[in-house]
């Protein structure tokens, strides 16, 4: 499956607090302690426009064509990389390596949808050492 990765430039004005819209809360909230970035927003959406997620949801129709995982960090203490790891029914489909830049940063990864992608999905947002910031759960349906 071909996926596309986009880096979103740093936006200092993106510091307003947006509630986290996801199916579940972080599976391991304490894992963020001691990390060099703090996740303030993680959401599945149909796209990203003007540095913000478009139509956040937990269920996406296959007709959407593309979906994105949007994440915002504040603060980011030093430049670093994170992973967005996509799992379909427990099987890893793709892993995106994304950069974070100090002092705060937003970034996202996307995939193109195909008929065989229907079903439950998980995205793990983690640092390079495997510490998980958050797990997002969503479904792709008809």
């Amino acid at each position: 499956m071909k996926t596309s990765i986009f880096f979103l430039f740093l936006s200092l004005f993106f510091t307003s607090v947006i509630p986290v819209c996801s199916q579940s809360k972080s599976d391991s909230p304490t894992e963020q302690n001691g990390q060099k970035a703090l996740l303030i927003q993680a959401v599945m959406c149909e796209g990203v426009q003007h540095y913000a997620p478009v139509t956040p949801a937990i269920v996406f129709s296959i007709d959407s064509g593309k979906i994105s995982c949007f994440t915002a960090f504040d603060p980011v203490l030093e430049n670093m990389f994170i992973y967005h790891t996509w799992y379909h029914r427990g099987r890893m489909v793709t892993r995106k390596k994304l950069s974070l830049k100090s002092p705060k940063w937003s970034t996202f990864s996307s995939i193109e949808l195909r008929a065989i992608d229907k079903g439950p999905w998980i995205i793990e947002i983690s640092d390079l050492r495997g510490n998980i910031f958050k797990t997002l759960r969503f479904s792709i349906t008809d």
Partner: peptide, 10 residues
Amino acid sequence: PIQADWTGKL
């Protein structure tokens, strides 16, 4: 953890 397995179309 439990995850909802949605199907059909909204």
